[in-house]
Design a protein around this nucleic acid. Sequence first.
DNA 1: AAAATACACAACCGCGCGAGC
DNA 2: CGCTCGCGCGGTTGTGTATTT
Length: 196
Amino acid sequence: MRTPNGEMNTGLKKGSWSLEEDKKLVSYVNRYGIWNWSHMPKYAGLSRSGKNCRLRWMNYLKPNIKRGKFSKEEEEIILHSHSLLGNRWSAIATRLPGRTDNEIKNYWHTHLKKRGSHNLVHETTNPNDSSTSYAFQDNDNKNTQHQLNHVTDIIVTQSSTTSEDDNSSSTSIISSIEQEVDIKDNYYDIGSPGTV
DNA sequence: AAAATACACAACCGCGCGAGC
DNA sequence: CGCTCGCGCGGTTGTGTATTT
């Protein structure tokens, strides 16, 4: 979109994808599968970089990708996940089957960022229920973010073992997120020497 | 009706990580 | 052990569209 139909010195096309290009990529992947993104475009007859093809496939052409507006439930999941994981969009995306990290990231920046995690705290925190106070009070808490990186693997693993087909309810997902909070809390209880 | 502004989203870029040599 | 390559991720940008003035 940046440079519609533009071309670089490398001869690789950039910018928006044409229907023809989409068709080529889809039919190639359907026929031969994904084996090597950097070599694939040549065989698929595309003047695109492998990276470009991968991005297009992952964010737009891949089967089962959900398009259109986010539901209230999805929104909730994003807010919850973001409060836990921060800007780890790919991790958040694993909780929303059919949604891509890019889509979630865009949605966050355009719809949810304004509300921010502060709002989430206000929305979810029950004064009588301290268990909901896990939402970050400070988005810029980089140390916390850094530490959270270590637990994300656990979280993602758990997510993949939790049944998560398209029909899974948001409440079950959110409750699994809340279980993750326990994991996180335990992690902090144990502590990580040398890291502050 | 036209211009200005805000919003939404596809796509690009750079970086880091892991695997293979 | 160090280097190269490919992949994936997150931040950011640019353009089309909608809304407001």
